[in-house]
Design a protein around this nucleic acid. Sequence first.
DNA 1: AGTGGATCCTGAACGC
DNA 2: TGCGTTCAGGATCCAC
Length: 282
Amino acid sequence: MPELPEVEVVRAGLERHVVGATLASVEVLHPRPVRRDPRGPSGFASVLTGRRVEAARRRGKYFWLPLDSGDALLGHLGMSGQMLVQPVGTADERHLRVRFGLTTGGELRFVDQRMFGGLSVSTGGADLPPEIEHIARDPIDPEFDDDLFVARVRKRTSGIKRLLLDQGLISGVGNIYADEALWRARLHGERSGDRLKRAQVVELLSHVRAVMGEALAQGGTSFDALYVNVNGESGYFDRSLSAYGQEGEPCGRCATPIRRITFMNRSSYFCPRCQPKPRAST
DNA sequence: AGTGGATCCTGAACGC
DNA sequence: TGCGTTCAGGATCCAC
């Protein structure tokens, strides 16, 4: 489940291994991953063929490769996507969806089991693809505006976990790191934004940064074989998790068993003692 | 405009 | 053994 640290590892891998190469061939093996591209699979392939990759950039969990045409190849890994650079002749991965032949030798491959991710060509999107203009900066971005984030959170009545997952407010935070940051901040995810003190939101933001920073230092999180970076190497961070996936395990602070509840059709893990559920009036 | 729930997708894990 | 159900979740879509 790639979150921002994993996507940054992928971006860095693309920068190192793909920038400077020309896409000599493009082969779409499944239409779904290019569903966002209005050109369709064949148009996607033809507009990319022969283009040179000039950079590798990222905002939140999106990455894009500006091209010598002024367009950009925009991508998102979804839940299970991978960008792999493989030698020519490497056996096809079971869920190989798109293959790019590179003039530098080797192939860039988009592999995605569940196909929540995808690729598309953004017209004139070299600087910031218009498709992702609504995505906020991430908290690692030097231009992230802390005061603006705090102010916006404190005007919203949604639960703080939903706000952390709102990519228009803050990008790059997924389910796992949201739970970890909330545990560190001792906040229940259902606490409404407008009822949090300014200092509570500031502290929560610092925990989000810390969790991301630790994951980035370790090369991203991996919980199963689904996430692999651009070279096919998995990152490991899972031993550091305090809340996510820890149902029934003792809280690291107070030893109360961690609980799991369903939220937005996914799981939320929290300590019922350190992170008390808000009362209806609070 | 903000809110909250549904939806997409595959395959591993689970229950009977 | 086999078949059906549940679960995982990022981003988008939609009704209110």
